[in-house]
Design a binder for these strands. Structure first.
Lengths: 128, 128
DNA sequence: TCGAACCCTGACATCAATGTGAAGGTCAAG
DNA sequence: CTTGACCTTCACATTGATGTCAGGGTTCGA
């Protein structure tokens, strides 16, 4: 498919898809007239990229972890020690983010629960 | 304490603390000479802000969820319906981020495990 | 009293992720 | 064959989180 269709289906703009390509996240083929040509599987991939960006990962980080995220066979043999070290590092960072965000999510949930409970319990006279 | 000390202890620059204040995340007092005056408890708060920013939340979002994150009593009574709706929304977003990041974390972990296992199993002759 | 080490405000710089627009090629339908 | 909806590249604008610098006040110890 061409860039416009992928953009529509994956919830991104054509501009962004070109940007992701520039950042090494996507490598579409080209058809005879120079148009980029994407295949079906990329719509999921683009959604995943967008999720990760939304979660605060940089394109550089995503470039590093994306190969491990495309389920199926791992290209394990090509991994240099530097890449592996980088990945160990990214893994720790991801774990930390998950921890931090989970705590925040739970705190917000607790707050909302407290509000809802109070809503059902009428305000005692003279309460602040 | 003054801005420099808080900056040191919380791992931020004075510039950033002023920025957080501008964004409504911090409201230090002022001493007679105009210097900002922060109290002890803010070092944890600033650390938390930095964590959340690192996790991809915006200062705007943090401004919304921070009141629920400061453990202790909730200022439940002051919550307007709009605030509550915003919080419900933020809660969903947080949950989504946690999901997405957890998946990525697990995928990276699985990849690393696969690499380590392969490292112990010698490459079969003729393997790619 | 002078200098170092703080603090203040305000402005401009930077980086990454995006948007937007110009100038032009391709293609299908009328 | 023209028009409209695509596509291309290139370049400049914007937003959010930061850094940095300039011009100027405060405080404290030598």
């Amino acid at each position: 498919m061409r860039i416009g269709e992928l953009a529509d289906r994956a919830g991104a703009s054509p501009r962004l898809l070109r940007y992701y390509e520039e950042q090494g996240l996507l490598k579409p083929g080209r058809s005879a007239n120079g148009y980029r040509e994407y295949d079906e599987a990329l719509v999921e991939r683009v959604r995943q990229i967008r999720s990760l960006l939304d979660s605060g990962l940089s394109t550089r980080t995503i470039r590093e972890v994306l190969p491990c995220l495309t389920s199926g066979q791992y290209h394990v043999r090509g991994a240099t020690p530097e890449t592996l070290a980088a990945l160990e590092h990214e893994h720790r960072q991801l774990a930390e983010r998950v921890e931090c965000l989970s705590r925040s999510r739970d705190a917000v949930a607790a707050y909302l629960r407290a509000v809802h409970e109070l809503r059902e319990t009428p305000v005692p006279a003279g309460a602040c």
